[in-house]
Design a protein around this nucleic acid. Structure first.
Lengths: 237, 237
DNA sequence: CGTAAAATTGATATTTCTCAATGAGAGTGG
DNA sequence: CCACTCTCATTGAGAAATATCAATTTTACG
């Protein structure tokens, strides 16, 4: 949570060479629309630890993640934190009904987003049902993920939680980096704990245990999945 | 899960006197559209315990709940169950990306739904961005609720979970029956436990404890909220 | 190289679960 | 109308999982 010093790049000719062009909301737009769309968004950079928006803030912008990883979380009044998800390139953030964000979002490491002012974006969407449809698809996909995560939080043991998380995270990275048994974990152990509804100590112990059992190897900045089959077995339960 | 004996009513002139007319997806349609829309939906009744659709089933219909309460849940291979939500009149069920339902839905007590075959509904939506927008709103609202529930599952104690559930359920019923300190609980203790990520025994003990402390009174088919302020305090934590 | 933050490990405490028994209410058939 | 039975809910005792508290160890960074 350092003071938020962001860089705003000049606008224009981004979309055509945007990394998330195919995966993000904008995949629903044709070339002509894209040209107009370009003028709505601005690339903005955040450093690790910076907050992009906070829960209860009035929503003034939507965000399309272009690069990096964000943690999305909610806090209880006494400080307990639940991470409700990690955002990756292609994810679209900021939609809500109330006009206020219903979770907070921090950059984990360097992040680039495509930021859209709410009002112009709303107008642009108005006569582009394709774009609305795409946003709806993303919301429905997220909803499905949210339900899966409820099962994990409510009904799985610590071992299952960690194994499921590692496999799920690896799976999400496939679209970005291809399938690999080397799984980078840019988030801290505390972040993982707050995502899985555990304490940092339990996460740490579970990692160690998985390593002792030869399922993973803990490496710098991540893990190496030595025995994917055993991990799957643990996660399926 | 009795054999699913459903009654299908003849079609026609439902919408104008539909109980959920104002709250449901159809609230986005004008009178002319509504007339056409009527021919797409069929009222279907389910008895308590009947399954409306199951996870992994191919999605052939969408459902608009008109009357009654449903439990929406996912099962782990070993039978552990997580209830991901309760559906009430006005809720719209069945949207997904994969073409298969991503949770199961049972009637709790008698339920009436307005059932839409997927393909015609999809075509109808195609040139009604208003309807799509409404569906999107409902999805975004659900997503927000899902995130709140993640916080509950991951970070709250048993006492907090139960107090939060009772207040939240009471709040949801306001739209249907008005605000009341008498809170009907049509679902079983096991349902509540599976919703809160607890065991039935813990739920039962917590109810008893809240009653001993004068926060609630356990009555037939529900509870009476004697001390809303204390309940709020417990839930906020 | 020194300091701070993050991660790991250990010992103990607490919460919630599990197993087992009992109690209460609803429906059934004599 | 009353036993009977079934399901659901409650209660108790002990076990297990995870949290908490405290101490190192490791890593990151100036």
């Amino acid at each position: 949570m350092k003071p938020s010093v962001v860089m705003i790049e000049p606008n224009g000719h981004f979309c055509r060479d945007c990394a998330v062009r195919g995966a993000a909301v904008c995949s629903s737009l044709n070339a002509a629309e894209l040209t107009e769309f370009e003028h709505l968004g601005r690339r903005v950079h955040f450093d690790g630890g910076e907050t992009v928006f906070s829960e209860e803030d009035i929503t003034t912008s939507f965000y399309n993640v272009l690069e990096g990883v964000m943690r999305l979380y909610k806090l209880l009044p006494d400080g307990r934190r639940q991470i409700v998800g990690f955002a990756l390139p292609g994810d679209f953030l900021g939609m809500n009904i109330s006009g206020r964000h219903n979770f907070s979002a921090d950059a984990i490491g360097v992040v680039t987003v495509c930021q859209f002012a709410k009002a112009p974006f709303g107008r642009f969407i108005e006569d582009r049902p394709q774009l609305l449809k795409r946003i709806n698809e993303l919301a429905i996909r997220e909803l499905s993920q949210a339900r899966d995560h409820m099962v994990l939080l409510g009904r799985r043991s610590a071992d299952e939680k960690v194994a499921t998380f590692l496999l799920g995270w690896r799976e999400r990275l496939v679209a970005l980096k291809g399938l690999s048994d080397t799984v980078p974990l840019p988030m801290s152990r505390q972040d993982i704990a707050d995502y899985l509804g555990l304490t940092i100590e339990t996460v740490s112990r579970t990692f160690t245990k998985l390593e002792r059992h030869g399922v993973i190897e803990i490496i710098h900045g991540g893990i190496s999945l030595l025995d994917p089959a055993r991990a799957e077995a643990l996660a399926a339960a």
